[in-house]
Design a binder for these strands. Structure first.
Lengths: 102, 102
DNA sequence: TCAATTAGTCAAAAAAACATGACCACCATG
DNA sequence: CATGGTGGTCATGTTTTTTTGACTAATTGA
């Protein structure tokens, strides 16, 4: 592994948005804060480990913010960060380009 | 593999931009048309197969256009398509978000 | 004609991503 | 005190991606 292959700034961010589940997670988070078991139910076919990893990476890349809600049964939510919010436009652009407009 | 996990429109496009070499290939193509062996030399650590696969996927996703230049030594170039050009803004946005602005 | 450059393909192996099932701790209800 | 929900981790296996190295075919220059 050399180093000259990793000096593209967009790469890490791109990675934190790509993969089998991250795009859906991101889209769901644009609607409302998401929760672990809720995602597990909604994203049929996804499993705990994969989801945990995806969420961790998205938090590390500061797309999502993990917050512990100190209510009765102790919730944890994942919310779009400011950076995440800025990415919404990017995502919209990508979706439009996916739908055949040049 | 279930189907409900693949219905995010941006996903394919995102995949055609992500990975170990595609971001760099894309960036280089924004400067000038790129060529196979040129990429092989510039992207140190990359190999033929991976590059061929990356280029094929980017062409399939219509980010790049492959053209055979009928000159003396018969060149093949990969150029940004219209779609590819539209993605430049997206990329710029991603890079800016990578550099710490919220 | 020999060597080098062009742009690749193919089979196989190594590495990374993703999935499975077991397990943990915490809290609440019955 | 068992049952179920919260949000995970861990070891293991499968699947996908990336790398390695050998090979091809056309063109060019010495």
């Amino acid at each position: 592994m050399n180093t000259s292959s990793q000096n593209c700034p967009a790469q890490k961010l791109l990675k934190a948005l790509s993969g089998k589940w991250k795009p859906q997670i991101f889209k769901m988070a644009t609607n409302a804060p998401v929760r672990f078991n809720q995602l597990l139910r909604d994203l049929e076919g996804a499993n705990k480990q994969t989801l945990a990893t995806a969420l961790r990476e998205m938090v590390e890349e500061e797309i999502l913010v993990k917050s512990v809600i100190q209510e009765k049964p102790l919730h944890i939510t994942y919310t779009l960060s400011e950076k995440g919010n800025s990415l919404v436009n990017v995502f919209v652009a990508l979706e439009q380009l996916s739908n055949g407009d040049a």
